[in-house]
């Protein structure tokens, strides 16, 4: 079973809606037993970093998820804030992150070089595929995704970079390290492009 981790943040319903649409059963839950038995995990999230970490902590999910992801190597997909929580820390807050990947979360600067890039970024953007892994199987040419974020992930190991995007500057819009995948955009709000990515995550990992 695919478990969408419910820690009170984010639009969980729309992820489940899209999984339904592509014929994949999933459950929205924060039950430790259900998470322990999950074959795939999705860590969503909208909102602030510290809020996210303290919610995970309050639900006793940090240890359980670390066991599942780091020891048992269960595939996990972090979306938006879910991706950022996988890093060591964030300029948005003071709490440590899950620290599963050698990366930190930083604030976007407002660029006005070619045109104005207001922060938060809110809209569609292209991705450059930096390494061809099973998540990218049969991607559409010029795949684009919907982004909403004021912070981005800076990865310190170049091998972990999966996607790169440009918003005034280049930044990592997706990483993949062993069984851990994070994407900054919202596949659940990105039409067929998002469906393809979610299907690849479920089928190929």
């Amino acid at each position: 079973m695919v478990v969408i981790i419910d820690y009170g943040l984010g639009n969980l319903g729309s992820i489940k809606n899209m999984l339904n649409k592509i014929g994949i059963q999933s459950e929205i839950s924060n039950d430790l037993e259900k998470i322990n038995n999950a074959e795939k995990l999705i860590l969503p999230g909208v909102g602030s970093f510290d809020n996210g970490m303290s919610s995970l902590n309050d639900l006793n999910l940090i240890e359980a998820l670390t066991q599942k992801v780091i020891i048992e190597k269960t595939p996990i997909l972090g979306i938006c804030l879910g991706m950022q929580l996988m890093t060591k820390n964030s300029q948005e807050g003071t709490l440590p992150g899950l620290g599963w990947i050698n990366a930190e979360t930083k604030k976007f600067k407002t660029h006005t070089n070619t045109r104005k890039f207001p922060v938060p970024q809110m809209g569609w953007n292209y991705i450059d595929i930096k390494k061809n892994t099973p998540i990218c199987t049969d991607f559409f040419s010029e795949s684009k995704f919907y982004f909403v974020h004021a912070y981005y992930v800076e990865t310190y190991n170049p091998d972990d970079v999966l996607f790169q995007s440009q918003y005034g500057e280049n930044y990592t819009s997706g990483f993949e390290y062993k069984n851990i995948i994070g994407v900054q955009f919202h596949p659940e709000k990105s039409h067929k492009y998002g469906m393809k990515l979610l299907r690849n995550f479920i089928n190929n990992y």
């Binding site: 319903g13 649409k21 919907y146 919202h186 709000k189 990105s190 469906m195």
Partner: peptide, 8 residues
Amino acid sequence: IASECFMP
């Protein structure tokens, strides 16, 4: 509406 829409 939300369950029919795969865009924001």
